[in-house]
């Protein structure tokens, strides 16, 4: 499917580490900018990465984000070990959230995480095993703006 990747990097994400929340997404944004991708692709990938990173921090015990960039697309794969998502369709509904009251007080749990990823990606797959973990595959096409 994808042509050869010009860049790959792995980022570990620790569940519950709110102090570092957003650092992987910011790093991905910088990397994509440095690779010369167009502003819109960088922005979409950064938003998708942020929401995916926050989901791992809020709900999972640990996880990993893999960034792969080819001339055609940016792929972000997220694997976490965590409780999983019991009802993926429900979780994709804007406004639905299982965030705790403490998280909501901090402004998390708007129920917009997965919808924001969907809106900012061209391909989005969610796979989840309850009690084991969740895998997200996110693809953002570069639309000819090659790195």
């Amino acid at each position: 499917m994808a042509a050869e990747d010009v860049y790959r990097q792995e980022f570990p994400v620790k569940g519950g580490d709110f102090a570092k929340a957003g650092t992987v997404a910011c790093r991905i944004k910088e990397l994509l900018k440095d690779l010369g991708l167009d502003v819109k692709t960088v922005r979409r990938a950064a938003i998708a990465a942020y929401e995916a990173e926050m989901n791992v921090i809020m709900y999972a015990w640990q996880g990993r984000m893999d960034l792969a960039v080819s001339p055609e697309e940016v792929r972000i794969t997220v694997d976490d070990q965590g409780p999983g998502i019991a009802d993926i369709e429900l979780a994709m509904t804007e406004g639905y959230s299982t965030a705790t009251p403490e998280m909501r007080e901090l402004g998390f749990g708007a129920g917009m995480g997965l919808p924001n990823i969907k809106r900012n990606s061209d391909v989005f797959h969610v796979d989840s095993q309850t009690g084991q973990g969740t895998r997200l595959e996110i693809i953002i096409r570069t639309n000819g703006h090659k790195p």
Partner: peptide, 24 residues
């Protein structure tokens, strides 16, 4: 005051009005 709402609906060069004060 909802972070994902700002991520979803805020625009570049917007001024963000909020009562959240934490590093995120």
């Amino acid at each position: 005051d909802l972070l994902s709402d700002v991520i979803g609906h805020g625009r570049k060069d917007d001024l963000w009005v909020t009562m959240q004060i934490h590093p995120n």
